[in-house]
Simulated assay, not measured.
Amino acid sequence: MKDTLIIQISDTHLTSMGNKPSFNQRLDPYDKLSLVFADIKKIKKKPEFIVVTGDLIHEGNATDYAHLREILHYKEQELGTPIFVLLGNHDRTEAFYHGFLQKSVKNKYYHKVSVNGKDNYFLDTTFGNIEQGYLDKEQLDWLGENLKKEPKRPALIFMHHPIAGASLHHMRFSVLQNGADLLRVCRQGNIQGIFSGHVHFSTTYSIDGILNSVAESTAYHIDCRDKHQHYVSDASGYSIITLSDKMEIGVENRYLYCGQETIKKIDVAQTDFIDLKTIM
């Protein structure tokens, strides 16, 4: 049996030039990202690819994204592994297009990459600058059309906002607001796993027979066990996704640093889904 590895990094929240680290981080988020890449370098098996699932820069500008482009290009050369990125709610689309992609700005950044007999879909769940995630009709139609072309071909989805699952009951106000729409589209193909971030703690759950895996943040951890008050601590982690030749999936959550001090408290008034009229 030949295993394939995919590395998922999420919520790096790199500090924009001239600003302080977000959420009162004590350790520099660039140093935390360096810890992650140093740990990846120790893995003997070469990953198929690395994906950073959003919140790349904490509300940065084009110069910040250009700097990130340089860092990731260097890491691609060093590791011999392609690195893909997608956007989160703290990213700024226009700055990303100008600084990272160096292309004309589009409303959404999504694409598909086919590797070793499977399709990998990188989706854009951002909606303006609001916290919640939402997948527009254009992306859902695009995904459905692609899945229908080869409905039995194994596929994975990577996105920033997770679908609300059993372990995210208190987070429905913040996650993907139209997860049911995505799941309906997924039934048209052979989606094996959905990988996301956003909530800053790792968890896994199954919906409609699809593994949903949420990665720990590279920048800071959020304890969301208290329904109406969440606690932030410095932390750094990432995920190693293992796929067998039969598309059996396993996820290892790698923790490189776990601070015990609460560096910020977040008050949460309501925890249910928001009114979609706010988005529409």
Rank of each mutant, 00 (worst) to 15 (best):
R153N: 08
P154R: 13
P154K: 11
A155V: 10
L156A: 09
I157R: 09
I157C: 04
F158G: 02
H160C: 05
A164W: 07
A164S: 15
G165Y: 11
A166V: 11
S167W: 10
H169E: 15
H169D: 15
F173R: 03
F173S: 08
V175W: 04
G179P: 12
A180K: 12
D181E: 15
L183Y: 02
C186L: 05
G189D: 00
I191R: 02
I191W: 09
Q192H: 15
G193C: 15
G193Y: 13
I194R: 00
F195P: 01
S196W: 08
S196K: 05
S196Q: 07
S196Y: 00
H198A: 09
V199T: 13
F201W: 10
F201N: 09
F201M: 04
F201D: 12
T203V: 13
T204P: 01
T204K: 13
S206M: 14
S206Y: 14
I207A: 07
G209L: 02
L211K: 15
V214D: 08
E216C: 03
T218L: 04
A219F: 00
H221Q: 08
I222W: 08
D223L: 01
C224S: 06
C224L: 03
R225H: 15
R225L: 10
H228G: 04
H228Y: 13
H230E: 06
H230Y: 11
V232M: 01
